[in-house]
Nucleic acid binder design. Sequence first.
DNA 1: ATGGCGGCACAATGCCGA
Length: 256
Amino acid sequence: MLKIATWNVNSLKVRLPQVLQWLADNPVDVLAVQETKMTDDKFPQAEIEAAGFHVVFSGQKTYNGVAIIARHPIEDVVKNNPLFLDEQQRLLTATVAGIRIVCAYIPNGQSLESDKYQYKLKWLDALHDYLDSERKLHTNLALLGDYNIAPEDRDVYDPAAWIGENLVSPPERAAFVRLQHLELIDAFRLFDQAEKLYSWWDYRRMGFRLNRGMRIDHILLSPPLAARCTACVIDKVPRKWEQPSDHAPVIATLSA
DNA sequence: ATGGCGGCACAATGCCGA
């Protein structure tokens, strides 16, 4: 049995104790981390390794930054998308326990009028092409991360209020569908799930207490991994801790 | 209608996130 997870920690400097606590509490084999918000020289590699994990990372100052933490050796690491020149550190790929792990922090987009939105769509287009090449090299392929896309209205607390907005706009959702056309399957939707389950809640307006959230963190699996997947859950526990990230971890369980 | 929280920085207000 293997558990793979993703968590946007919103600053690893602030959240490192919570990440280590969560890893101690949860027997996950791989954790894809987004928004480390630190340069590589500041990365807490020694602390994570001292806790018994392997780790690789690709960061920058203030924004973005991704990492892969694993209980097993990490091999064949690739930083960024070879098909997309990008100064922002948002993509990290590595092989762990025979699975090609792609950790992605997909751009937020800000608003449909923003240049950042155009960047988001271009980034998604390049991600699609990169995954199309990766899936031909690796039958066991998993894309984990903060997608900044709520795929369907049931992934949004108030769909009527969000029609056409950033995170749900048709071009973004089409990009998500295009990833699925690469035979990448949304692990969460492999199973019957309760209604109103989300992975992010706004810090403001009591978003979490009122469960005003969005499901924007996802785990997509290639067919052999989807066939092994026995569960996919969102862990709301760390969102209830003091000084939490605004995102919750998502965990997929794979049978041996 | 606006911003409301939280993290960060050539910080003491402005930016970005989602």
